[in-house]
Design a protein around this nucleic acid. Structure first.
Lengths: 251, 251
DNA sequence: CGTACTCTTGACCATATTCAAGAGACGTGG
DNA sequence: CCACGTCTCTTGAATATGGTCAAGAGTACG
């Protein structure tokens, strides 16, 4: 793990936020934009592999992912790791720290990432002055909950093959929803160890399972990443209906 | 599954809400109480075993649990069931339906339950006029997320024995936090099938695992329920630090 | 050109599942 | 009051799924 301190810069004005411009998110009213501008404290640029939030610590910041991929995870004392979910552009990080005194999960960058940094103790201001933004935050929390529900179903009740198919399709669809890659393009700087730690499987068994998915023509595993060759087939194997659709807000 | 229509009554004024009176939740300012009173549409009395919310349907209501136990779950087409979490007094249900067009999980009553019913389409009113209540809802969503994270870690990375110890301790501590039972009292009308479907294990293996926990003196399994005999030992077996503490709000 | 990282594969082993059968408690209707 | 069905728990045996150990191959990078 890279423990060198991440660099901080401040150079993107909110009006030019690449997320706003992308058309994947709702646009803000002028007063909202003004508030957000004041709420924003800077940007965090994290290299792939670095830790953004650490379990057991208290962070005074909240983050919105501007670009790149990361993942949330928890660890047991003996080193067993469970990846809880992946974070993509538009995702909001650190809300749990507003409720609990310390973080109960960590977040690592999978690729290089840029995050927008907010001050946690102004969160209640936001609720008081901009109910629409507050609603959006709640919206994001409910959506995260929905994803975790699906992951729980997957890990608890799907076979190794079904789980793997679900995960790859899930990642593909989430990425596609924010145009992180083109159809069939390499999906993420993801190792089989990450997949294993997401699925609750061993590395060896994950490898064999991914190979079977490859043999079936559903995916191709590349070096630290994969390509989707037949998303329909993945969903069929997993018995999954795909990501629910919604016009999403962001903060 | 009991599919008879649940009874609706309206008889508890918010000022006399047993949750408010219990001292386990924050109290409301008079204007908040007034709003809640108007937000409330009635009460839902559900018998043990009945379904309160059903996956795939659209509910126009939101609920707060007043009394009793229930559980949230998802099912695969072939009938495999995964219990996602348990719902106890003070928990808020149905928020996901405000974000998605339909429910993506079901909720069943484990015991007889009383729920407070709210109108979903007035939720945004609440955000506009009562930021503190809005913050509380977000707070509850973040707390649910934290519990799901822990469940994922458990199912993904803990052994059968560790998972079972975690679950029973978790249920015990959640119940204790709202005084649903006294120390060492029978915990819930829970069958081993429920435990199995929560842990992602088969019924048979769950039975054998619970027996081992009994032999170790950590619990006693009773008919449709269990008693905690040594919570410390459970936490030690599970390598779990217990429920995080917080002064909780409710809606 | 060595070192680190990731992927791959085979052999063996552990954990958990499935199948099957039976015991005990409870409630209901004859 | 008894007979019967249902529900839950229990246990053993055979099986399957996935884990662990071990070793090696390919690639990237300094």
């Amino acid at each position: 793990m890279d423990t060198s301190p991440p660099k901080k810069t401040r150079n993107i004005p909110c009006e030019e936020c690449p997320l706003l411009c992308s058309g994947h998110f709702r646009s803000f009213e002028p007063p909202e934009l003004e508030f957000i501008s004041g709420f924003k404290r800077g940007e965090l640029v994290s290299d792939a592999g670095s830790t953004i939030l650490l379990e057991g610590t208290h962070s005074v910041h909240l983050y919105t992912v501007i670009s790149g991929w990361g993942f949330r995870y928890k660890m047991l004392e003996d080193g067993r790791r469970q990846i809880l979910n992946y974070v993509l552009p538009g995702d909001f990080l650190g809300l749990q720290g507003s409720v609990l005194s310390e973080m109960h999960h960590s977040v690592d960058a999978l690729s290089d990432m840029i995050l927008c940094v907010f001050e946690r103790n102004r969160l209640f201001d936001l609720f008081e002055t901009h109910p629409h933004l507050a609603y959006d935050i709640t919206w994001l929390a409910a959506r995260e909950e929905q994803m975790l529900d699906e992951h729980l179903l997957s890990i608890g009740r799907r076979s190794a093959m079904e789980r793997a198919a679900y995960l790859l399709s899930f990642l593909y669809e989430r990425g596609a929803a924010v145009e992180l890659f083109n159809r069939k393009a390499r999906i993420a700087p993801l190792t089989q160890q990450h997949v294993a730690d997401t699925l609750g499987l061993s590395l060896v068994h994950t490898n064999k399972t991914l190979k079977k998915l490859g043999d079936r023509g559903a995916i191709s595993w590349l070096d630290s990443g994969f390509e989707i060759r037949d998303n329909e087939k993945l969903r069929e194997i997993a018995n999954w209906t795909g990501l629910p659709e919604f016009a999403r807000p962001f903060i």
